[in-house]
């Protein structure tokens, strides 16, 4: 509980810093002039809030998927949920149904979540599950390329490719509402699965034997992770590794109980992504670095580190 309060405070600090810091210097973000108001409240505020909500959604779905699959390497990006969500959105955009992009992202994330749960339920050790995710991710990458190839409107292609790299630049309060709503839905679903995730600490059979309804737990987590990932991806494109890094960082303080990791993982994911987005905006690059790229640059090594540590323990989670 104390950790959650600290992470909430950290999130608020990061959000405030995001209002204040940026390429255009602002002395006092709460000053009343039109220029400040426009920059802070119409550009930076929705962007920062989107970053927080996307990070929280990815952190929560990562923690829930890790609990369900009993694997610290699980997250929406690694398991291909994000890739499939992006595929859904790309198909909607490329074929002129931009309004349906969020729904398509949601449905495709759901399909990937169901696939990975069915295929990965009996996976032995974390490595085989990650391989299933690699397969799904490559498949979604290939299908995105195919969709772009077949798209009737090649003019928008560059934008679409750019979009899949992941960014929260120029997002509005509509985006905030979309990812916020889906995060809230996902959080409710996952909260009902929390005790089941806790029971799964004993493994599948013993979890059933202490009275856990595993079918229900599975459905709730799959739906919750799909809602979170679908919302995050529809708004921000593919942003990887937050879902791995957030629970991993939180475990060091909160311990390993999967139920007690859910809320702190969401808060840490949000704070993490806001900080990453501030860094992206402040870095003096010609074109702004994509948030998804930055997340991969930070998260990739974390992922490798966890994988190496697991391998050192004989590949058993």
């Amino acid at each position: 509980m104390r950790l959650s309060l600290a992470l909430t405070a950290l999130s608020l600090c990061a959000l405030f810093a995001a209002l204040w810091l940026g390429p255009a210097p602002i002395a006092d973000p709460f000053a009343g002039d039109v220029r400040t108001h426009t920059i802070v409240w119409e550009v930076r505020f929705p962007r920062a809030l989107t970053a927080w909500l996307v990070g929280a959604a990815l952190g929560l779905s990562g923690a829930a998927l890790q609990g369900l699959l009993r694997n610290p390497l699980a997250d929406s990006g690694v398991l291909g949920l994000s890739g499939f969500a992006a595929l859904g959105a790309v198909i909607a955009f490329a074929f002129g149904f931009a309004a349906f992009a969020p729904i398509a992202a949601l449905l495709f994330a759901l399909a990937a979540a169901m696939l990975v749960t069915v295929l990965g339920w009996r996976a032995r050790g974390p490595a085989s599950l990650v391989l299933i995710g690699v397969g799904l991710s490559s498949l979604s990458g290939g299908l995105i390329a195919l969709a772009l190839n077949l798209a009737p409107n090649p003019g928008a292609l560059a934008d679409l490719v750019n979009w899949t790299l992941g960014s929260v630049e120029g997002r509005s309060l509509n985006d905030v509402a979309l990812v916020g709503g889906l995060l809230a839905l996902g959080a409710v679903l996952v909260a009902f699965a929390a005790r089941g995730l806790q029971a799964l600490t004993l493994g599948e059979e013993a979890a059933a034997a202490i009275g856990a309804d595993l079918g229900r737990t599975r459905v709730l987590v799959v739906l919750g992770a799909a809602a979170c990932t679908g919302g995050a991806t529809a708004v921000a494109g593919v942003i990887g590794f937050v879902g791995i890094a957030a629970p991993h960082l939180v475990r060091a303080i909160a311990g390993h109980d999967p139920a007690r990791l859910l809320l702190p993982s969401a808060l840490a994911g949000g704070a993490l992504l806001v900080c990453a987005d501030i860094a992206v905006r402040l870095l003096p690059t010609d074109a702004e670095l994509k948030l998804g790229v930055a997340a991969a640059l930070i998260g990739g090594p974390v992922f490798a580190l966890i994988a190496a540590r697991l391998a050192g323990r004989g590949g058993d989670a």
Partner: peptide, 22 residues
């Protein structure tokens, strides 16, 4: 239901697991 079974019998599998080090 799983719960009713658990209230009647406590089962210990042959190789009990603690997936997470709680």
């Amino acid at each position: 239901s799983a719960r009713e079974r658990a209230l009647r019998a406590a089962y210990l599998p042959q190789r009990p697991q603690a997936v997470w080090p709680v």
